[in-house]
Nucleic acid binder design. Structure first.
Lengths: 155, 155
DNA sequence: TGATTTCCCATGGTATCCCATAAGAACCCA
DNA sequence: TGGGTTCTTATGGGATACCATGGGAAATCA
């Protein structure tokens, strides 16, 4: 079935907890990962989060470098050093760690953004800005592509 | 097999629900998708909706870029972050979310427009205007006054 | 032992489920 | 052909379940 879709903004409480959106929890449960896998994004002020599907995607990436090579070691350190495994409590909440706070600038609200095989954690205002930019880029990327075979386009 | 055809206008109730036209429900049932897949249209004030067939169309687009790359992230945010999976209740209704409201301007009535492999959700008055404009353009194109654009809506 | 984290329960608002009803379409049988 | 009957569909509304959030108590850590 489908993965992480849509976006939600929830509130951080006094203890630094935030509810993970219920639809995302359902996807994680199906995926079977214990807890959550989080890693800072290398190219934007967000944190990638997900379960086994995200993890295997990252593994696939690092396997492109042969083990024992300096490149592989450096990559491993970068990946594991920038990652965390937050627990999810009985009510479906996680705590926003200092690492996530520092990298995202989150203070009192958190935006969760579905990206199918993973989702991202954003500071709401920063997300709005990034999204506007992403939509511009997406339009450019898609229009350069071969047209999709839609027959019914009105006009 | 036959897809979504014709168009229907239904009423929003006090709870923000609206009946999905029965013929469309029949198509969705055949498609086998649980619920509905919705995504805002990038070139008009409408929302695209459908089942697996629409979803695979979206997936196809994003799979052209390798995961974890900046390009893929931007595209995933534009596509999946701007999507939703409304449920369909036992009576064949869906709720019009704030996202759909904002993007379409829907207040109390909803027009469903069949487009074969997907359908669109419109504010009725906006749809009338859009359709009239589309017909003018079609006529102009047929009479040879305007070079026929291959695809890709130029605003 | 004080501070922090984890577990558990409470609550208000909202979404979902379920049933009722009315209008219309299709159907059937004389 | 016509009139009655049954089904489907759109819509309304009450009851229930779910979810995000808050806070206390127990457990863990330094």
């Amino acid at each position: 079935m489908s993965g992480f879709v849509s976006h939600f903004t929830n509130r951080l409480d006094a203890k630094g907890r935030v509810s993970i959106p219920a639809p995302f929890r359902a996807v994680l449960a199906r995926d079977g990962f214990e807890g959550l896998y989080c890693i800072t994004s290398s190219h934007c002020e967000a944190v990638d989060a997900g379960g086994n599907e995200l993890l295997s995607e990252i593994n696939k990436r690092s396997e492109a470098f042969s083990k024992l090579s300096p490149d592989h070691d450096a990559l491993a350190i970068a990946l594991f050093g920038a990652s965390e495994n937050p627990k999810i409590d009985g009510d479906g909440r996680m705590v926003i760690s200092d690492m996530i706070r520092d990298h995202t600038g989150i203070t009192d609200h958190v935006t969760f953004v579905g990206m199918n095989y993973k989702f991202q954690i954003w500071e709401p205002e920063k997300f709005r800005e990034y999204r506007a930019e992403a939509q511009r880029r997406a339009l450019a990327m898609l229009s350069g592509q071969v047209p999709v075979p839609s027959q019914g386009e009105p006009a």
